[in-house]
Design a protein around this nucleic acid. Structure first.
Lengths: 227, 227
DNA sequence: CGCGCTTTTGAGATAACTCAATACAGGTGG
DNA sequence: CCACCTGTATTGAGTTATCTCAAAAGCGCG
């Protein structure tokens, strides 16, 4: 799922999977640890699995003819990814922070070998994905640079932040280039916008990758979140 | 589903629904005819149904706090719409060309009263929707005005065009404002871009709502469709 | 300590926006 | 049937947010 811009990223569906007694059934469920740089799958690969992320961060990307790259989503623990169009993946997906993922055989679902609950849960995950993508569409189409970056930081803070007195702090596992390609901006604009947010007092940067949210209300004000 | 930007909009899933023997089961399947302006549902409404479009055109929209509107999708015959986030719709959906839709009770699916095939098909429709939205993300984030409009016209031509000698012609059921709000542009920019495409000889406008594609190759060249 | 890569900052260019005016089309009433 | 009227579409002119190109600063690593 997306970094997520959905109303309630906290109520993820992931835990439901844990309850499913998959091991007693035909689906082979497997765990895997993945180092940074590993590709979970590439565009065009046969889609053999769905993946539930237990830890780490993954990145889904796609490229236009002319080389312009788009980061479609960043995926965090609890997210379920690997929804294919048909038999094949239509994005590249690689690891940007060391990750553990659980694999679910897609075929078992397609063949009806899988439990109905499992199938239902997957549908719910897909519906949630659709909702998250709608939110991201709004961001890309209708928000200014500062609104985009503020939204992005607000969501990351919500999902991965640890509180630090009145403040909240979190690490950005991705580069400025990734953020730019996710938000439909350039590296320079992202960097400049970080500076604006710093100077406004909404955030501070401990390092270029460690953000401290000093004023969440200000950040949310600037993010123009959907009605 | 989206107007669609997906690789193969022709292979829609709709026909599969027809084969499903829903009438013999608990799902009440109903038909409905809808006049222009009718709301199929509104943001916040309880999501009682999924809808399969038999004819006509529908429009899904969402609005930001500050009033900026985004058209999330135009839906054409064969598309399945009404995917909710949870129990509620998160978009407005209204009719922009007289439509016939088939209703499928969502509850029956959630309760497992529905056939496994039905559920599977719905999952496939959702996956297809995700894929289409990914395509549209690329358009919004990474394409210029002319590429956006060219993509849009190419897809509409593909999905609704009738061939006319070497040419292809189709009607735009939506206003320039709708197209602008779909592509993340302004009315003026859309209008100017139509003029550019006219002057380049790629298209002609019979009326402002009736497009003739004179040179599909040129149109596709300008659309920078994803790799 | 120095090298390469990422990030930040600066200055100028440009695509798309805003505001404004004109043209067009469809519908209504005289 | 034509003139008017209203909403939509087109065109024009000037502004602006973001991009591009370029340089400097910061950071991690051998």
């Amino acid at each position: 799922m997306y970094v997520n811009f959905a109303p309630h990223p906290s109520e993820d569906l992931g835990h439901l999977f844990k309850e499913t007694p998959c091991v007693n059934r035909s689906t082979s469920v497997r765990q895997r640890r993945l180092a940074v740089g590993t590709h979970l799958f590439r565009e065009g690969d046969a889609a053999k699995y769905f993946y539930k992320i237990k830890s780490g961060v993954l990145r889904s990307t796609r490229v236009l003819k002319n080389g312009r790259r788009q980061v479609l989503s960043f995926s965090l623990p609890g997210d379920i990814i690997g929804f294919p169009n048909d038999e094949h993946h239509n994005t590249d997906c690689d690891v940007i922070a060391p990750a553990e993922v659980t694999l679910f055989r897609r075929k078992a679902l397609a063949n009806g070998e899988e439990s109905p609950e499992m199938r239902q849960l997957l549908l719910l995950a897909a519906l949630r994905e659709i909702s998250a993508m709608q939110d991201h569409l709004m961001v890309l189409a209708r928000k200014s640079a500062i609104e985009k970056v503020a939204s992005f930081l607000a969501v990351l803070s919500e999902r991965t932040g640890t509180s630090l007195g009145n403040y909240s702090t979190f690490e950005l596992p991705m580069s400025r280039a990734d953020i730019a390609d996710f938000l439909g901006l350039t590296i320079e604009t992202v960097s400049r916008t970080f500076s604006v947010l710093r100077k406004s007092g909404a955030i501070a940067l401990e390092t270029s990758k460690i953000v401290v949210v000093l004023d969440m209300d200000a950040l949310l004000d600037m993010s123009q979140t959907s009605d």
